[in-house]
Design a protein around this nucleic acid. Structure first.
Lengths: 197, 197
DNA sequence: GACTAATTAGGACGACTGTATTATTTTGCA
DNA sequence: TGCAAAATAATACAGTCGTCCTAATTAGTC
């Protein structure tokens, strides 16, 4: 695989990533991706020998991007609370896309679950890395064993917000809930300090 | 439309309802439904002249069922808090299905949103009736203008729980979060009483 | 029992799907 | 320049999709 092939492969993954998010995995055909990339349909089989292989590449790419994002926040902010707030603000920063297409992670997992697709176990790693990162931040804030549970709770809250924002096509609801969620986070940390630890 | 036709029509809707939930709308073909009902594929066009028409019938059926369920609770329980608890317990009572297929309402809305399907605005009524019913219960508990917002919050929490239970195929998480959600509901009502109203 | 309407089965239609093969063009190196 | 490898295009394949049409069967009514 030379440079040119690798570059095109990357372009295919980028297009597939966007289309899977916008239209869903199954509704996105080879032709859709080919048209988006600007190559012939037949050229695909040189780079990916099945649709699942593209899905796998997309999941790996997203996973890497999520990890990079989280690492960057870990570097950029010293306050764990600020890091978590940054995570919550994903919703605000992508409210337009969420309104139209939901959460890229949640909607993909939902689709794969419905199709009994074995790659669900790869897709939900995109949640797992966020859960683990949030757990670390919460422990730095003084939480103990319950940190992981609180992290899952945070993810669930975000997912619920994304789902209803998408269903009602209502960004106002998203902003309203994000405000509440940040408030809840503050109380959670305050309560923890009260308990002394 | 005679009796027999109406009966078969109903059987088609029931099968379509289940299959749309288990496999998703687009992944469910006419053949899938026909096989499930035990009729020929061609027979469909006598009862439904398009796939969207079946979807419409399914949504209407689900909507009616949801309304009946809520009305029954309004009759059966005098305490609005108990009614809301009953609503939360939907999650517990369907944890197996939710683990495998997510929330029937949330996952359908997500799919329709991804396909820019115009019937999303019909599908999200399944959320809206729940929101309105919860709003009534919360107002009976003494909440004011914020009741509607709290109702939406409750729905979002449920959706988040369903999404992650499905993605991680983990019912324990569901039970854990349901417990917390009920606790939160108690605090919410208590806090309301403190403020006097 | 005859006639009309309701209902069902069966198959044809063109379009599209993921997959696969083959031929052609482009690239990089000796 | 020449040649092997990489990359791309073009197209064929069998299957499935939603839709539609028609013929056959069943049911209800006089």
């Amino acid at each position: 695989m030379g440079q040119k092939g690798e570059a095109l492969r990357q372009r295919i993954v980028v297009s597939a990533d966007q289309l899977f998010y916008q239209k869903g995995y199954e509704s996105t055909s080879f032709s859709d991706i080919a048209d988006d990339v600007g190559i012939s349909r037949g050229n695909f089989y040189y780079h990916f020998k099945s649709k699942d292989e593209i899905l796998n590449a997309v999941i790996e790419t997203r996973l890497t991007e999520i990890e990079q994002m989280l690492n960057e926040w870990s570097k950029q902010y010293t306050d764990p609370k600020q890091r978590i707030v940054e995570h919550i603000d994903i919703l605000t920063n992508h409210q337009d896309k969420i309104k139209n297409h939901g959460c890229p992670v949640g909607s993909l997992c939902a689709e794969l679950a419905k199709q009994n697709h074995s790659m669900l176990r790869d897709a939900n790693k995109m949640f797992a890395v966020q859960r683990d990162w949030l757990t670390v931040q919460l422990k730095e804030l003084g939480l103990g064993k319950e940190a992981r549970q609180v992290a899952m709770h945070l993810l669930a809250r975000s997912q619920g917000i994304a789902t209803l924002t998408n269903a009602f096509e209502d960004q106002n609801f998203l902003r309203q809930e994000v405000k509440q969620l940040k408030q809840w986070l503050g109380e959670q940390i305050q309560g923890q300090n009260k308990n002394g630890n």
